[in-house]
Amino acid sequence: MNIFRLAGDMTHLASVLVLLLKIHTIKSCSGVSLKTQELYALVFATRYLDIFVTYVSFYNTVMKLIFLGSSFSIVWYIRRHRVVRRSYDKDQDTFRHLFLLLPCLVLALVINEKFTFKEVMWTFSIYLEAVAILPQLVLLQRTRNIDNLTGQYVFLLGAYRALYILNWIYRYFTEEHYVHWITWIAGIIQTLLYADFFYYYFQSWKNSVKLELPA
């Protein structure tokens, strides 16, 4: 564990908690894409299939449980909570899951490190995580209505990815046999998806004006 990995995990954790707390306290999920949240729940479910079989560390197991629990809670809130579900912008959040799911599944079946069920599912989760933010970014762009918390949520997610790249660079130089092309390429693509958002986020921060994305 290095400082970049820890900082990455903490921003990831913070992003999920910010979103969960926002939904829980103000009882509104406006501006939040259910599609993206469902994809994340699927990402964690397929990635942590071996959670009770393979033990890495206490830290890893606890974090996995938190990510699984929080992602499914968020989906539950938006779909089932009596008050929260009324604030969901269903007509704006129209991105189709299948456009992302199918290519990721096909790619995972073709490009993987080992052709076993567990490994293909893990690879699928890596590919899917890389693009799962797209429905959220499309929703932000479409409604142009970004409250502070939703902006912070997306910013923290992007920061988590950037920190993971630093973690990989660090591990590459400090650990033997640390070459993971699949994770690296998917991770870099995932981080690049945030570049545009980051640009506008920093602009608004610099000029201390409300974050607004161009139409």
Binding site: D9, T54, V56, N60, E176, T183
Partner: peptide, 10 residues
Amino acid sequence: KEEPQGHDEL
């Protein structure tokens, strides 16, 4: 040296 089994990142 063998690569460690499994994935140790989240």
